[in-house]
């Protein structure tokens, strides 16, 4: 698998969430994603960036443009050193929230992408990796 581009952006404020959406959109265009595919990956990125900020107390996102054979994709990895998620299975259920959200960020973004991977350790932090292929 070839990495065409690889960058890291901070997630420290609600303006950074806007920035992550814009970058993801640009890169999805660069990878010639269809409009619907662009919309899906940008929406998932928005959800996960907000989780990083609100639940993870800030962190960063690594964004990678990938190519595997003739397949082109986008991978985003959100990393924080926040409180972690004690019960992942629960957190991944539709409607589960410990805040006042709708509890759709994790479960919903999982449905919007092709690859979804989450690691979390209580007291250490959370890493969520998503990828979408065109």
């Amino acid at each position: 698998m070839a990495t065409l581009r690889d960058e890291i952006y901070p997630i420290r404020s609600s303006d950074d969430i806007v920035k992550v959406r814009q970058i993801t959109r640009e890169w999805a265009l660069m990878q010639t994603f269809s409009l619907v595919d662009q919309t899906k990956i940008v929406t998932a990125a928005s959800e996960l960036a907000r989780n990083t900020l609100e639940h993870g107390h800030g962190g960063e996102v690594r964004i990678q443009a990938l190519q595997e054979g003739s397949r082109r994709g986008l991978r985003l990895t959100f990393v924080d050193q926040g409180p972690g998620i004690p019960d992942l299975a629960k957190a991944l259920q539709d409607g589960f929230t410990t805040g006042n959200g709708m509890g759709l960020g994790l479960s919903g973004s999982k449905r919007l992408v092709n690859d979804f991977d989450i690691h979390s350790e209580t007291g250490k932090g959370t890493t969520v990796m998503i990828a979408r292929w065109k």
Binding site: V36, T39, K40, M102, L104, G108, S109, R111, L112
Partner: peptide, 14 residues
């Protein structure tokens, strides 16, 4: 609402 947004919303579960 744009069609691509509507499609995505359904999948998001919203």
């Amino acid at each position: 609402m744009r069609p691509a947004v509507a499609i995505t919303l359904v999948e998001l579960g919203l």
